[in-house]
Amino acid sequence: MIEFLNDVIEIVTKHYPFLLRGIGYTMLIALAGTLAGLLIGLATGVVRTCPLSKNGFVRLLQKILNGIIAVYVEVFRGTPMMVQAMVIYWGYAFATGGSTLPLIPSGIIIVSINTGAYMAEIVRGGIISIDKGQFEGAAAVGMTHWQTMLHIVLPQVLRNILPSVANEFVINIKDTSVLNVIGVTELYYFAGIIKRESFQTFQTYLVVCVIYFVLTFTVTRVLRLIEKKLQGADSYVICGSQSDPSAEIRVPKQQEVPND
């Protein structure tokens, strides 16, 4: 037992530069991939909910774009990210006659595209859940679809889908491990190097396992805090109620700052 612990400690103390670099790249790829994926999801959400134009040419473009999005979502949700990594990375090499993309950007691109497909559905669900009245309230004052989405709908969608986005982020931290198939130097890739140097397979992967858990657990807790902060607005004192219109007088917050 003591020997085992010594092995573990030695792996950490001897190879910590590898582990730290692995953690850094894993988090970089997961974070960048999740954010880019979210942007892809939001963009597809805006496009897909846009009412069809009266102009025939624009309407055709819209339909083509919606078709492309549908194919994109189905293909990238329906195939493993490990395979996508190989196809995109070596597909680029094949198309350019041998030149390859730099590895870390490749990893970020692959995770972004893959996450984007899931985010597209998450955002779509978020937009559907917004009350129709929010769209009508915006349309009735003369806002365009884009203005309505940007200023009214998407801020509310973002708040509602934050738990799902956090979910995707955690999944991405773990799933970056598949990028080792194209040689991206994330945590799992370094685990392989450490294993080959130390010949201690179980000890090495146990350390890496704990590191992954610490990363995902920290991230879920931090995102939970952010979520709570965003929801704070609802828990304020209600000023005035349906049954008691005079309740407003008793709300101290309003009396402190009546007119700025």
Binding site: D131, G133, Q134, E136, G137, A138, A139, A140, V141, G142, M143, T144, H151, I152, P155, Q156, R159
Partner: peptide
């Protein structure tokens, strides 16, 4: 412009439809 027209015809809804995020 449909948007300018709608801006000059105000509407008040049964369900208020205030923007919940603002």
């Amino acid at each position: 412009s449909l948007y300018k027209y709608r801006a000059s015809v105000g509407m008040v809804f049964q369900q208020f439809n205030l923007y919940n995020n603002l």
